[in-house]
Design a protein around this nucleic acid. Structure first.
Lengths: 210, 210
DNA sequence: TAGATTGTTAATCGATTAACAATC
DNA sequence: TAGATTGTTAATCGATTAACAATC
């Protein structure tokens, strides 16, 4: 159960494997070889076998991989079978979109709370959950013990609020603020999403042909 | 001018350098050494010097880097000084949020058009631009020659629409569809944004301590 | 000048690819 | 069994770090 010291490069590829395998499953495909999968995904077959073997021998010589079984294994590796209780902080445009646009239940989370500091938003219902005030968050966390948070707040408040959330028991952040979170908190996991960075990388690529 | 064969790892770090340098500039800091910057960014000083030297000697021995000058150089490297004309395809929740939430002008783009196929949205104004019908896109592209597109459309239509857009002259995509674009188009640049993948990686990290 | 810090080469480390024996 | 394809080791490639001479 203790999958340790797996390289970050491998981990970042896992969700993509998972998505492709879910697709295959939906198409009714029951087995696939590393060679076939590599073509679909634009990787080498060797890399796929290496990646999967970090976690165990999920395939069978002469046969390939059972799609259903492999999908399940990757789900387990990613922890999707043990949902984390999730809250969203900041219910402006972006927060609302995240709340309604993303399915959390099949990605390892259960969305249980929405928060904003803006008086006028409190009580509004988004995706079947009421928006709560930031002042009620201490009590909410004590009662419901969320472990993960999506941050859709301005750069300026990101540091202070994340610090508060860590004290309230949050262990993981998906950060949309234009701020690099998580350099300072050991034991806390962070994933930053920076649209802006992607746009700039795209700009670079476009100006430098592919 | 022809910065060639720079490694992807370096390119992906450039926007982050740019953000940190813009911050320093805003704080009125005029010079910084690789050692200081490395502390702020959580990198090694060596890596920073290596990265910057891919493009030229922007520093000065005994002094460090001039913040203003370096910021400008990175902007040029990223192509931010030569804006690409940008359109957004799909003006649902996500498309609207992107249109209003992101500043494109300081990231190498000029947002010039919004498109959706849904009749009821046509004509609505978002961020000072009218939403146009998908049937008018050929004409629009011929007249205005956009080169970049943000895709906020469902997985199912992503492939067909991106193919159409390539034929209309689009050279770069920022793709938000739950679909891996760009395996098939040589000469076309793509950046995929997959919130879901980030959430799953976060889940993995949380279950495996840091 | 003397001190500081870059630019750059060399050494290390990690990730990917190739190859093939094991085995279903 | 014979053919196919994995699991796994070894070879290559790329990226990061360390070290230091060049130089402002």
């Amino acid at each position: 159960m203790a999958y340790r010291s797996i390289s970050p490069s491998v981990i970042r590829r896992l969700p993509r494997y998972y998505r492709f395998l879910e697709d295959l499953k939906a198409q009714g495909i029951t087995r696939i070889s590393s060679a076939e999968l590599s073509k679909k995904m634009g990787l080498t077959a060797s890399q796929i076998r290496q990646d999967l073997n970090c976690f165990g021998g999920f395939g069978q010589q002469g046969y390939g991989y059972n799609v259903q079984l492999l999908t399940g294994e990757i789900a387990k590796i990613l922890g999707l079978d043990k949902p984390q209780k999730l809250i969203i902080i900041g219910m402006g445009n972006l927060g609302r979109t995240i709340a309604t646009h993303i399915r959390f239940d099949n990605k390892g989370y259960e969305l249980i709370g929405l928060f904003d500091q803006k008086e006028s938003l409190i009580g509004q219902v988004v995706h079947n959950l009421p928006i709560r005030s930031m002042s009620s968050i201490d009590e909410f966390c004590k009662e419901n013990s969320p472990t993960a948070a999506v941050l859709c707040i301005p750069k300026e408040s990101a540091e202070a609020i994340s610090y508060k959330l860590v004290k309230l028991g949050i262990k993981g952040f998906l950060n949309f603020s234009h701020y690099d979170l998580g350099l300072a908190y050991p034991g806390i996991s962070v994933e930053n999403v920076h649209f802006g960075d992607k746009l700039m990388v795209l700009s670079y690529k476009m100006h430098n042909d592919k």
